[in-house]
């Protein structure tokens, strides 16, 4: 056919993707076993978010248990997720590596305590954004669909095989944003500003809302992402996209 050269049958780096799918499925199964909800976003391709949700809630294979998965619609996905996501939940993002909505969501996922899986293509997201990337050779729909089909299949296998579904499933990449300080060994953490009061702020972290000292950094506003350590905010993270927290 005359368009065949444009859409050759797909041949992604299957071995690598298969390994990442297995890791992501085990992590997702661990979260489900602990009562998580899976939140799905696909900027500009909401059909994929809906497809993931229906796959988990109403499985095509008879006898599978229904698992809670929800498509989060545009616009204002970040705002919706901020309200919906509880620590321990999971977020599945579908979109290219330079999608600023997803970059923002994966980073905020650290503060919200969410496991974030990213079915993506193109430019890979920078390290430190705390996501599990399932990277595809292209953004063709058939490749995207089979990535989440396999994620669904493997997740159910993990749940049924009753392996130890510990939340400490090894992460495929170390987040620079959550590294330890070399001198004091205290954990660095990403936190989202909930409210501001003088030289302090209430921030949302994966462990809950905490109060931090903000006197070392410039004035923060609600929804800023900050890097904290031992009760002190050390840095305001750059705004990567949707820009809810705007500084003058």
């Amino acid at each position: 056919m005359n368009s065949g050269s444009r859409h050759e049958p797909l041949d992604p780096p299957a071995g690598h993707l298969a390994d990442l799918l297995a890791l992501s499925a085990l992590a997702l199964a661990s979260r489900f076993a602990d009562g998580a909800t899976l939140w799905c976003v696909a900027p500009g391709r909401s059909d994929h978010a809906l497809h993931v949700a229906v796959e988990f809630v109403h499985p095509a294979i008879v006898g599978k248990p229904a698992l809670p998965a929800v498509a989060v619609s545009e616009p204002n996905m970040t705002k919706s997720l901020r309200n919906f996501v509880r620590s321990g939940d999971a977020i599945l993002c579908v979109g290219p590596g330079d999608d600023t909505n997803i970059l923002d969501i994966t980073r905020r996922g650290l503060a919200w305590g969410a496991e974030t899986i990213w079915i993506g293509w193109g430019i890979r997201p920078p390290n430190g954004d705390g996501t599990r990337p399932l990277w595809l050779a292209s953004g063709q729909d058939s490749e995207i669909v089979r990535a989440y089909h396999l994620l669904w299949e493997l997740t159910h296998i993990c749940l049924e095989h009753q392996v130890s579904l510990s939340p400490q499933t090894p992460s495929p990449q170390t987040s620079s944003a959550e590294a330890s300080c070399q001198t004091c060994a205290d954990q660095l953490a990403v936190a989202e500003v909930v409210s501001v009061s003088g030289t302090g702020a209430s921030v949302r972290t994966s462990g809950g809302v905490e109060t931090v000292d903000t006197s070392l950094i410039e004035a923060v506003v609600i929804n800023d992402l900050v890097l904290t350590q031992a009760g002190v905010a050390l840095q305001i993270l750059d705004n990567v996209g949707t820009g809810e927290a705007q500084h003058e």
Binding site: A14, A18, A22
Partner: peptide
């Protein structure tokens, strides 16, 4: 299966088969 690492290896192997089947 008692060992998650064995499960991960098995899952990855089967995922690869299914990716190939799909292609």
């Amino acid at each position: 299966e008692p060992d998650p690492s064995q499960l991960l290896a098995d899952l990855a192997a089967s995922a690869k088969i299914k990716l190939d089947e799909s292609t």
